[in-house]
Computed example of a mutant assay.
Amino acid sequence: MTRDVPDQAGGVGVFDRAPDDQVSVLDADGTVVAPALEPDLDEETLVSMYRDMRLCRRFDERMISLQRQGRLGTYASLAGQEGSQIGSTYALADDDTISYQYREHGAVLSRGFPWEYLLYWMGHEVGNAALPDVGVFPLNISIGGHLPHAVGYAWAAKLNGDDGVTLVHFGEGSTSEGDFHEAANFAGVYDVPIVFFCNNNQWAISTPREKQTASATFAGKARAYGFDGIQVDGMDPLATYVVTEAVRERAANPADGEARPTMVEAVQYRFGAHTTADDPTVYRNEAEVNQWKERDPIARFEAYLRERGLLEDERIDAIESAIDETLADAVDRAEAYEGDPDDMFEYTYAEPTERLLEGRAHLRELRETHGDEAFLEDG
C-alpha cells in the first residue's frame, strides 16, 4: 500500500503551473532546486522559523507524553507537518486571521503561544479564549464545519473594508464534506479574500488519499469554483512560505479579472497517529512512513540553514534549551489551573434548559455537602 512520494518541481512561477505541478524550493536534502522561488528572508526570520518548527515537534512529543500519563485529553499529532504550518503562518500579515481544524498547532505556537492553549486540551473550554488575541479562530473540532464560517468572516471583513486576509486550514478528508463545497462556491462567487489551505497528509484517519477522491489533485478542485488551486510541497517550509505569500497578496490586492480566493494543497505526511485514540499500524505500513520521513521538514530546513552558515550545533542546543523551558513553564501553569465545574453547563445551549439548570443545581448541592475532593473521589 506504499504510494510514491511526489517528485520535485522546477522553478516555474507560483501561478504559472497546473494544479499537479508541485511547487518546491528545497529537495529532500535541503538543497535549493528552484532559486527563482527562494524567498528573500533575513537571518532572524529564517532562524525564527526553524525555532518554531522545533518548538512544534517538541510540543507534539510533550503533549503525547502528557496524554499517555492521563494529564491531557485526546490529542491530534502534528509531526511531519511543521513545514506547512510554520511556512504558511509566517507568510501572513500580523492582522490576518487563521481558522484551523485541530492539528495545526503551529499556527498558535508561532503567534506567541499563549500557555492557556493547553487548557483546551486538558478539558477546559476557557483554553479557547486566548486564541482570538493572537488572530486565531477558537478551536472547533469538526471535519470541514468551520469552512463556511471562515468564508463568512472573510466576506464580512471585505464588506467592512478591512485589509486582512483569512487563511483556513483543513485536511483533505474535509473535501468529502458538503461544507467544503458550499464554502468554496460562495468564496468564488463573491470573490472572498480567503486562502483555502488543504493539508493533504495522505490519510483521513484511516482512509487513504486515493479513496478520498477520483480527482488527480485536491488543488484541482478549486477550478470548479472559479479560482486557482496550487499544489506545494508541504514538507518544504520555504516553498510553503513563498506560495502562501503569493496567494495572500492576490487575496489582499487582486488584479483586474483575477478572483480573490486561492486553494493551496500542501502535500505532506502525518508521521504519527490521527489522534492519540488511533492506531495507524492497523491501516498503513512502516515502509511508507519511513519513505516520507526521508523528507522530514525539520531536517531539510536545518540542512539548508547550516549550508548558509546560519546554524551550528551550539545554536541548536541553545534553541532546544529555550524550547524546553518554554514548554515546562506552559505545562506547569496549565496544570496549576483550577477549573470551575459550573463551566460544564455554560456551553451546551445558548439558553440553558430546565433540565440543565436542575443538573447544575444538583452538582452545586453535592459540592457544598461533600466538598470537591470528596465528590470527585466518589465519582
Rank of each mutant, 00 (worst) to 15 (best):
M344L: 15
E338K: 06
G339T: 02
E368A: 14
A350Q: 06
G359W: 00
A361N: 10
E338S: 15
H362Q: 04
R360K: 15
G339A: 07
A336P: 01
E373W: 05
Y347A: 10
G371M: 01
T348W: 12
Y349E: 10
P352H: 01
E368R: 15
A336D: 08
L376P: 01
D332L: 06
Y347V: 09
P352W: 03
D332C: 04
D343M: 09
L376S: 11
E365G: 12
F345V: 05
D343G: 08
L357A: 14
A374C: 06
L376D: 13
Y349W: 12
E373Q: 05
T369C: 03
A374K: 08
E351A: 10
E377M: 00
L366V: 03
T353L: 13
E346W: 08
E365P: 01
P341Y: 03
L357N: 07
R364P: 06
D340F: 04
L357Q: 14
E338Q: 14
D343E: 11
D342F: 11
E373L: 04
A336Y: 13
E354A: 15
D343N: 09
E368M: 15
Y349D: 13
T353W: 09
A374R: 07
E351I: 10
A361Y: 01
Y347R: 11
F345G: 00
Y337L: 06
